[in-house]
Simulated assay, not measured.
Amino acid sequence: MDRNTLRNQLEIYRTPYEEESAFISDFSELTLDDNAYLRERLEGHFTASAWIVNKRRTHTLLTLHRKLGRWLQLGGHADGNENLIEVALKEAKEESGLNSLHLVDSTIFDLDKHIIPERPHVQEHFHYDVRYLFEADINEKLILSDESISLAWITFDSVVDMIGYNPSILRMLEKTSKSEILL
């Protein structure tokens, strides 16, 4: 996968979610910028995430992010890699220790453009997060990385109680529940 593949996927990507649909064109436009995959692009840059579920589709793996202090899916910066599936997989393995990760589909599962607050030495900026659906063995041992405070498999029924209101996670959860019917 490269920026042309991503651009092609974005051209055909459709979603019934208004908040997600509203920024598809922003993602497409960003693919034209040579620096889009570098965190040094201070206006915003691509990141990639893995929405990880167990094979029975009853749990999702979330991390309590150390810098943001919120429960989130696993993922991170592209750091120059235009293959966002590779980025999502690499980040998920680094942040969880899982070896059983399996990409369910090479097409985009979800998109989210969100603001990252200013921190020392880093100005406020946007992350253009491209998300992919992965499955993993819920019984495999998890290894906590330095980027996380905690790491846990959360039942779908408990996600809202655990994370509170996070529209992008709730959207992925809903998509997972709908895709369960199709599998």
Rank of each mutant, 00 (worst) to 15 (best):
Y17S: 06
L111C: 00
R41V: 03
T58H: 04
L64P: 08
D105V: 00
D105R: 03
V53W: 12
S150I: 06
K178N: 14
R66D: 12
E147T: 11
N4T: 10
L98E: 02
N4E: 14
P16H: 03
Y13W: 07
N8S: 15
N81T: 10
S106Y: 07
F156P: 11
T15K: 01
F134K: 05
R14N: 01
T155Y: 12
K178S: 10
S100W: 07
H125N: 12
R171G: 01
D137R: 06
D110A: 11
Y37H: 08
G75I: 05
T176L: 14
W71F: 08
P167E: 12
D157C: 02
D112A: 03
N139R: 13
A48C: 05
K141E: 15
M172H: 00
D157I: 08
L89P: 03
T58Q: 10
S179T: 08
N54S: 10
Y132H: 01
H114G: 09
H102M: 09
R41S: 04
F27S: 06
L101E: 02
L101D: 05
L103V: 09
R39L: 10
I12V: 14
A88L: 05
A48R: 04
I154V: 15
H102I: 15
R131Y: 00
D161N: 10
G76D: 04
W71Y: 13
K178R: 14
P117R: 11
K141I: 12
E43T: 13
E118V: 08
V122I: 12
T63N: 10
L101Q: 05
I116E: 14
I115G: 09
E82I: 09
T107C: 02
E20M: 00
S106V: 01
N35F: 04
F156V: 13
S168G: 05
N139A: 11
H45S: 07
R171A: 02
N166W: 03
H65N: 15
P16E: 14
P167V: 07
D2V: 06
K175A: 00
T107P: 00
E29D: 08
E95W: 03
L183V: 11
L170P: 11
L74N: 03
T47V: 12
A36H: 02
H102S: 09
W51M: 03
S49Q: 05
K55V: 08
S25H: 02
R70D: 12
E135G: 01
L72D: 15
I24R: 00
P16Q: 11
R70H: 08
H77S: 13
W71H: 08
N81R: 12
K93C: 06
R56V: 09
H102F: 10
E118Y: 04
Y132W: 04
L144V: 04
R39I: 12
L142K: 01
D2S: 11
Q123T: 14
R119Y: 11
L133R: 09
I85P: 08
M1S: 13
Y132G: 00
H121W: 06
S148A: 13
D146G: 07
G164C: 14
E147M: 07
H59P: 05
R131D: 03
L72H: 12
E180S: 13
L42M: 09
F27Q: 05
